[in-house]
Design a protein around this nucleic acid. Structure first.
Lengths: 111, 111
DNA sequence: GCAATAGTTAAGTAAATGCTTCAGTTTTGA
DNA sequence: TCAAAACTGAAGCATTTACTTAACTATTGC
């Protein structure tokens, strides 16, 4: 489920920018409005909205508008997809090292 | 250790491309030469070398040249840095949900 | 030695990114 | 009612990305 390559592209791409990671960090401590997200960042509000759109397109963030304020939240399941991909690679790598270890142990026995 | 923002930029940026992820997948199953990495990819060898340079700059891949063939390997510790950042966010998120749960439980008691 | 192999480097290009400013649109509070 | 607050969207611009082709440099096997 959800290892659509294009989805992972969007996800990793979204996380590749320090401003966007900072926004995700802020949101992992609780929901925030666009202005609140913008406050610590040295760029225009417009730029922040553009980053926010990237995050939303990647599925990492969900937003909802009530009145004139848009409230943003993390979508924790989405982060899981990136985590999952990385874990798969690590697992494959470790399985391989285990097999290599076994092989070397066997070879040693045979001396 | 190693949550230099610039390093994470390079890492996530490197993982944001499907060709590069495919190269990492291949390498997580064992070392490979540049041509072997290129073989399943529909692009010139030159393009593959350029992707490889991105991966190497990100610290995800280490290469070594012997004679005329360059052998590439995954650097498993590097993947750990990306994983760590994601885990931190998930933890912060979960801690927050726990606190929220506690708060709601308390509030309920007080009715 | 010399052609094939394996990779490297440079230059060029089309598209995508990360901003900016400016001109809107809704909401809201006094 | 009307100005301030909180965005939103479009246009423009400099930079970076993801390629390409073409020319080049080592290595290796015969």
């Amino acid at each position: 489920m959800l290892h659509d390559p294009a989805q992972l592209d969007l996800m990793f791409q979204a996380l590749a920018d320090p401003a966007r990671r900072q926004m995700v960090e802020r949101l992992s401590r609780g929901p925030a409005s666009v202005s609140q997200l913008a406050e610590p960042l040295a760029m225009s509000l417009s730029a922040v909205v553009q980053h926010l759109n990237v995050l939303e397109a990647s599925g990492l963030v969900r937003t909802e508008k009530l009145g004139r304020v848009r409230t943003c939240q993390i979508e924790p399941k989405a982060l899981g997809a990136a985590e999952h991909w990385i874990n798969e690679r690590r697992l494959a790598w470790e399985r391989r090292l285990d097999r290599l270890g076994d092989f070397l142990a066997e070879t040693k026995d045979e001396t």
